[in-house]
Amino acid sequence: MEVLLYSLRKLLAGIPLVLGVTLISFLLIVYFGPDKTYELVGKNPTAEQIAEVRSQLGYDRPFVTRYMEYLREIVTLDFGSSESTDEKVSSILARTIPVSLLLALPGFILGNALGVLLALVAAYFRGGLVDKLIMGSAAVGMSVSYLIAIIGFQILLSSADGLDLFPVRGWDTSTPLAYIQHVTVPTLATVFVALGYNTRFYRAVIVEEMTRDHVRTARAFGIPPAKIFYRNILKNSMVPIVTRVVFSIPLIVISGSLLLESYFGIPGIGKVSYDAIITGDQPVLKAVVALTAILFVVAQLLTDICYRLVDPRVSLGASTR
């Protein structure tokens, strides 16, 4: 009940945020953004022809009218049809978001889980050889560009010069085996790049928790290290860890990984957004922008609820001023 009331209040408080974000992004990428007029008018158009096309596309209507229309679309979640393919925007999203999720999730989960694990090991041996080795590798991972990592893994695993185990590009989720074959190389590249950042971040969090007074207290009472690690250190590190994890979710849901999707020719949401920007496909753009804003509000709500689960000091009651 407490959680439900809190969620409602938080969602209501999120409305101004969504309005603000949509207003700015509407202004920048819709109102002043890419425009399909010149693509449609043909060669050597007259001023009348241009005006006609603009009015067909609705570009000539006043700003307020267009923004209000956008808000109506957000509320009804009906963004019309793509101007490039005539496919319903809702069906485009329904088709591409699952693809992006399937593509990004394994790398996201592995990258964070391994990051926490390596960070724990590095923090435990901090200052020692193991720590230096892990942190050194993290720095290497961070310094290698995503594209280089992708190409590297492709050459190693997908080419005739390497092991030739996986398809070079494309996407197929018809069978679990096909899915694993297609997702492995992108996942490896993602983990390779994300792991360095994650490990560094989590190590800093964990080391800070290790120096807390209550850790010393537990040691002074003879509590064994494994228990201290779990109950005093890991449990208290959960707030920053949860924040980082939950706040990455909107990004993988809605923006996908443009680089992965375009490089491997995977029909995900990242590719669709990119194409919409390039061609000025405004219905799709508007949908992507609105969904991103809404997902961030939801993610914020989710983190707050998770805080309540991991930290008894956080209260969701009415006293949150």
Partner: peptide, 27 residues
């Protein structure tokens, strides 16, 4: 380390200066 653990808390106990931070906040 493991011999120390059987001494700490049982034979010698210690109280610290800062009661505000000396206990684990999440338990």
């Amino acid at each position: 380390d493991s011999s120390w653990r059987s001494v700490r808390g049982r034979k010698v106990a210690m109280i610290f200066q800062e009661p505000m931070t000396a206990l684990n906040p999440v338990f």
